[in-house]
C-alpha cells in the first residue's frame, strides 16, 4: 500500500462514523492501543511541549525507511499520533518529507493540527518531516 492508499484507507474507515462522539471513541481506542515509545527514550530532547498536552517523538531510520514511535500524556493526542504513524511509518524519508497529510482534514480532525491548538501535534508533524528531510539529505550525500 502506498502512502496515498494508506490515507484513503483511514478516510474510508472514518466514513462509518457520522457522530462526533463515535469518531472520538474510535480515536481513543487507537490511543489506548498505540505502541508507545520505549520509556528510556522519553527524554527531554524528544519532548515536544504543547500548551495543553505533551508529546514525545523518537525517530529511527532503518533500511532506508522512517520508523517513528511516539507517546503523549493525553489519550486523544495519542490516537491521532497512531493515525499519523500508521501513514508515515515504513515510508522513505523523501516521501515523508513531501507528503501532504490531507487525511487529517478529510476526517475532520484539522483542529488538532491547527497552530492555535497548541497540543504539540503540529510541532510533532513538523519534527517528523524535518527528521525525514535530514535523513534524505544524508542518504543522497
Amino acid at each position: 500500500m502506498n502512502i496515498e492508499e494508506k490515507q484513503q484507507e483511514i478516510i474510508d474507515e472514518f466514513t462509518i462514523y457520522d457522530d462526533w462522539m463515535e469518531k472520538y471513541e474510535y480515536i481513543i481506542e487507537l490511543g489506548k492501543e498505540l505502541e508507545t515509545i520505549d520509556p528510556t527514550k522519553k527524554t527531554d530532547d524528544r519532548l515536544i511541549e504543547g500548551c495543553q498536552s505533551r508529546v514525545w517523538l523518537n525517530t529511527d531510520v532503518q533500511e532506508g525507511k522512517m520508523r517513528f514511535t511516539a507517546d503523549s500524556d493525553a489519550i486523544i493526542t495519542k490516537g491521532i499520533i497512531g493515525l499519523l504513524i500508521r501513514v508515515l511509518n515504513n515510508e522513505t524519508p523523501e516521501t515523508v518529507a513531501k507528503t501532504d497529510l490531507h487525511f487529517i482534514n478529510d476526517i475532520g480532525l484539522q483542529e488538532h493540527l491547527s497552530p492555535t491548538r497548541a497540543n504539540g501535534l503540529l510541532s510533532m508533524v513538523n519534527r517528523m518531516k524535518m527528521d525525514a528531510l535530514k535523513a534524505s539529505m544524508k542518504s543522497t550525500k
Binding site: 462526533w20 462522539m21 472520538y24 481513543i28 500548551c51 495543553q52 498536552s53 500524556d73 493525553a74 489519550i75 486523544i76 493526542t77 497540543n119
Partner: peptide
Amino acid sequence: KIHPFDIGTLLDKQGVAVRTGH
C-alpha cells in the same frame, strides 16, 4: 489518570465549552 485536554475535547463535541490547561 485522565488528561484534562481529553475531557475538554469530549465535552466540546457534546456542545459544552470549558477551558482546559493551566
